[in-house]
């Protein structure tokens, strides 16, 4: 029953969020600010994680798939597909749910407990729309850039393995990257990320917006938002994979 209440509350909140802003100019400014706060500030962590995961996937594939029946370019091919299909979208968004989701929930939650949201409401501003919409739009607009960076740097990580170790030759790795390449995988990955970004920002916004109490509750809301976003992302992954790839 409590879960159903939450779904209902979330839906009603989204009705308030996804409306025409009171002042388009102010919302645009907020969107740019959020793209910087949520997106640009996440680039470094995305690049670092993608580089190392790309390198580790390459090593693991090379070590586990050691079968003379398989062509030598298999490592590059499998690394590419793992990065494009799952890592750069789903795993990266799970990481973003931790970093960005907790940031959004704690920021909005603190605004709630310090009466800043009440101040907006009393001024006649649609506080849900003013606070949450720019975060959703900012993250959704910036996430494809993060995905593309993640894909490129992940592949570079694998390439570095081919240069600095003797596990795989550079030629085999590069050949593997180009073999049986399906351009739709990039589109698929970006579509998934757009959905995940919406879920991360809106769920975190929901948990922050309805905080009651003090700093402990803000912390709890922040944790709950990360847990709920992660679960929702995994469910959405299953649904989107079924819808887009079968």
């Amino acid at each position: 029953m409590s879960a159903l209440n939450k779904v209902g509350e979330y839906t009603l909140l989204m009705q308030k969020v996804l409306t025409r802003p009171d002042r388009f100019r102010e919302t645009c400014k907020q969107i740019v600010r959020e793209m910087n706060n949520l997106g640009v500030s996440s680039i470094i962590i995305v690049l670092i994680i993608s580089f190392f995961i790309g390198a580790v996937i390459t090593i693991q594939i090379r070590l586990r798939v050691d079968n003379p029946m398989l062509p030598k370019y298999t490592t590059g091919l499998v690394t590419r597909d793992i990065l494009l299909l799952e890592f750069s979208s789903t795993i990266m968004c799970l990481l973003l749910a931790g970093k960005v989701g907790s940031n959004i929930a704690s920021e909005i939650g603190t605004m709630r407990i310090t009466e800043q949201i009440d101040a907006l409401d009393i001024m006649g501003v649609n506080s849900a729309n003013f606070l949450i919409l720019p975060k959703i739009v900012g993250l959704v607009l910036f996430s494809p850039i993060l995905v593309i960076f993640s894909m490129i740097i992940g592949i570079v990580g694998g390439y570095m393995v081919s240069i600095f170790t003797d596990l795989i030759t550079t030629d085999n790795y590069l050949y593997g990257l180009q073999t049986f390449f399906v351009p739709f995988y990039i589109k698929y990955s970006i579509i998934k990320t757009l959905v995940y970004s919406f879920l991360i920002a809106s769920i975190a916004g929901y948990y922050g917006y309805y905080v009651k109490g003090g700093s402990l509750e803000v912390g709890k809301a922040s944790t709950d938002s990360v847990v709920m976003s992660s679960i929702t992302i995994l469910i959405a992954d299953l649904v989107l994979t079924q819808l887009l790839l079968t």
């Binding site: 603190t110 310090t114 009466e115 800043q116 009393i122 001024m123």
Partner: peptide
């Protein structure tokens, strides 16, 4: 009507 209202909150509620 709310545009005709000013409000001073207990802890000021300035936007951080």
């Amino acid at each position: 009507l709310r545009r005709e209202i000013g409000m001073l909150f207990q802890n000021s509620a300035l936007f951080d």
